[in-house]
């Protein structure tokens, strides 16, 4: 069974609507490690050893965060800068993450349409996630398609509950023993995993 690590980053969860529902849902899945970065490091003073140990002990690493300014909250950058050390995560001797899967679970303010060539932001969401994909590549990891909740400002409580149900199921599938991770890069969004025929006999 694949071990999943969720590195969660939200500087103001108390104001959040999407993650307020996603977080309890994710946490309730047995066998998933939920690592709340802002809660553990309110001073952004990241314990590198602890974080590396967590990474080493998991197969799938997902960053769950709101999509701020076409990127992640500050602590995610801090985490990447400090934890993905040269010689450990990348470089000639940096093979600690080799073969693992890396991805994002994000909530986005704009609609899916606004994140397109014709849309207001002029680019696809995947373009903005390029730094994460390349980070995964440099660390010899496979980048999974992102799980995206678009247009959060217009979403009602019920809509968000549907997303958290989806995410729970997606994570459940990824956990299962015979899940084929090679299917992931072919998807546009991780959400679509549910439209594929089930690989497991549930």
């Amino acid at each position: 069974m694949a071990k999943i690590l969720i590195n969660f980053a939200h500087p103001a969860l108390e104001k959040s609507r999407v993650h307020a529902q996603l977080v309890p849902a994710v946490k309730s899945i047995p066998g998933i490690t939920f690592n709340d970065l802002y809660e553990n490091y309110p001073d952004l003073d990241i314990n590198v050893q602890r974080e590396q140990k967590l990474l080493a002990n998991h197969d799938i690493i997902l960053l769950q965060h709101p999509f701020y300014w076409y990127s992640a909250p500050a602590i995610v950058k801090q985490w990447i800068d400090l934890v993905l050390e040269h010689g450990w995560a990348y470089g000639h001797t940096g093979k600690a993450l080799k073969g693992k899967t890396f991805g994002n679970i994000i909530s986005v303010g704009g609609s899916e349409h606004s994140y397109s060539k014709e849309g207001h932001h002029g680019h696809d969401i995947h373009d903005f996630l390029l730094p994460f994909r390349q980070t995964a590549k440099l660390c010899n990891m496979q980048y999974a398609a992102p799980f995206v909740v678009f247009g959060v400002h217009k979403k009602e409580f019920e809509d968000i509950r549907e997303y958290s149900r989806q995410l729970t199921e997606v994570l459940g599938r990824m956990q299962s023993a015979d899940f084929d991770a090679s299917a992931l890069p072919g998807l546009a969004y991780l959400n679509q995993l549910l439209q594929l025929p089930a690989q497991t006999q549930q």
Binding site: P66, F67, G109, S114
Partner: peptide, 14 residues
């Protein structure tokens, strides 16, 4: 959030 709910286009980052 209020602004976005009033307008149809979501013109702000994030």
């Amino acid at each position: 959030r209020e602004e976005i709910r009033k307008t149809d286009e979501d013109q702000l980052p994030g």
